[in-house]
Design a protein around this nucleic acid. Structure first.
Lengths: 342, 342
DNA sequence: TTGTACGCGTTATCAA
DNA sequence: TTGATAACGCGTACAA
């Protein structure tokens, strides 16, 4: 019945209620003064006609969409899902909808998404993409789209940043490792195009080793649990020990399982840790030691910053999240003053 | 500089290029005929002014948003993230954006989201929410929003369905279990408000047991890895064996880890399986046996169905996904003709 | 090939 | 308190 019928417009409501559309608009937006009697009359006809205001037309008229654009690489990673979830919670609280712009590790595609964000008329954007550089982000800002950028320092009047800090904890962990007679060779798992977070940590890893004059390895591996698992099953046929740092839990879990399944003891023979802590870390056995950052909190924070930015009430334009060392069973505990790791 | 400037409109482009806005519109949409010369002229001024068409105004004028609404419960579950990822891939391919409407296990909120979907003017919707009943969905359809509904049969001219089928495999598995001298008591982990999929499976579980006159248990537990883990650590202090069916990998992993950490052998003492298979199943040790459905595929399929629906080219309005038994180490293999499970 | 004028469904500014 | 009427930025018959 209702099927091919067009959308009920405010005009039809006005006609049916015998008022002008201006009055209907006032009733909808609960502003301006309307007689209780006419208000009721309008509300009744709205209900009986099943009228729903067109968000589109409202947005066009008010220049506000109550819509936030979220740019992320693939929603498939658990830490991204957590991030998204944090955003979602706050968005709901603040009355915003989210439009997803998912990019998959290609700068070209990311740029295309930025264009889409601009024409999509969102009120603001949260950008978590590893392929874009500051210039690309500035581009979106020049179009007057307030943005919160994750894991990258971009300045601009309507741009805020959420930064991650791995430096201190990474440096400390590595140096403590060697000072407490860490005797396994440390390897950093490099993933091509995995983004800024990893690249930064890798640099820090290398720098710390060079400062101490220690030998290290960079191992290229795929951004896939299965392929990494298979790779390391091979690897452990000839290499029977090592200390590995991977950027995602899932990748770290692959190394850990490969070690265990190869008959090696974790953490005695092989130690593993991850740069981003998610639930995976608690589920595997032994549990994973991680440099953890609560991505759910990051998402929340980013969204709060964005709403503040939209209200012109954001004072501190940069938020910093320090990675926290969460100890699991995948590494030997060297925190005590009298290390017992024989 | 560009900051408080208003958006560049098609009108400004027309003026700067010395043509009418209709011509600019033609250039943008690459339709109608335009002289190469004027085309170039327009394109140049578009570039120099940095003009971007307003998706809003376009949508209002064409009555098409190229936007799909996706209704899901919390993006935090891995299987939902997979689902979302499948949708994302196809959406990108077909040129649609996604607007997220996340509901958290409350019917009231879900209804509110439906209202939002209607006023958001999306071209179509994919609905995966366990709290909504057919009537609620029909409501959205009556507003002329084509929809693909997951895990629920709803009929309507512009409604398609993706259904899950656990019946056969669940029934078969349970019956085979008992016929092959399955001697552990089977327990079904009930989670309050966890939705239709679980409720359906639970009914089937009970029915199968009653048909065979076998004893069983329903265990209430939280929809949280940690709380379930703690609960079962207690549980295994007094109960030293059992066969457990949980609806998510994460919950199943909690039982599995609690068993192992309590010194029990999986699958000898305790067997566990899950109703939805994700990567978790491969990462835990022993690996999880699951009734798996590839949620990424479900997402893809749903999105394909929706685009077909929008093109009026959808012939089969119902897609069925049969759960597949993926054997892991968390259960004893009873598939062989000569079972060896002593 | 190009331009004019109207419509899309609202909000908002005036008068009345 | 109410009602015309002009934006909002664009697509598109229709005319030129």
């Amino acid at each position: 019945m209702n099927n091919e019928k067009d959308r009920v417009t405010i005009y039809q409501v006005a006609k049916a209620a015998g008022v002008s559309l201006a009055t209907v608009s006032r009733v909808i937006n609960k502003q301006g003064s309307v007689t209780p009697a006419t208000r009721k009359k309008v509300e009744d006809t709205i209900a009986s006609l099943g009228y729903r205001p067109s968000g589109l037309a409202q947005a066009l008229a008010t220049n506000r969409t109550t819509n936030i654009g979220v740019v992320i690489p693939s929603a498939n990673y658990v830490y991204i899902a957590n991030f998204l979830n944090g955003i979602t919670d706050v968005a709901k609280e603040k009355g915003y909808s989210l439009t997803l712009f998912s990019t998959s590790h290609s700068r070209e595609e990311a740029l295309q998404m930025i264009e889409k964000v601009i024409s999509s008329h969102v009120d603001g954007a949260i950008i978590f993409d590893d392929q874009l550089d500051s210039e690309d982000i500035s581009h979106i800002a020049s179009y007057n789209v307030p943005a919160v950028v994750i894991d990258q320092k971009v300045s601009g009047e309507k741009v805020a940043n959420v930064l991650f800090n791995y430096d201190a904890i990474l440096d400390q962990t590595i140096k403590r490792y060697y000072s407490r007679r860490g005797d396994k060779k440390m390897s950093f798992l490099h993933v091509h195009n995995a983004g800024r977070l990893l690249a930064h940590a890798e640099k820090k890893f290398i720098k710390a080793h060079e400062e101490m004059g220690k030998d290290y390895a960079i191992i290229n591996c795929d951004d896939s649990y299965t392929r990494t698992y298979n790779y390391f099953c091979e690897y452990f046929k000839t290499n029977r020990k090592g200390f590995f740092i991977a950027y995602r839990d899932s990748i770290a879990a692959a190394v850990l399982n490969a070690a265990t399944d190869s008959g090696l003891n974790v953490p005695k023979d092989v130690e593993v840790m991850s740069l981003v802590g998610t639930k995976y870390a608690h589920i595997v056995r032994p549990t994973l030691t991680t440099f953890s950052i609560d991505m759910n909190e990051v998402g929340k924070r980013a969204m709060y910053m964005l709403t503040d930015l939209l209200n012109h009430s954001l004072v501190e334009k940069t938020a910093k999240f320090d990675a926290e060392l969460v100890r699991g069973g995948s590494t030997i505990d060297r925190s005590g003053s009298d290390p017992d790791y024989r």
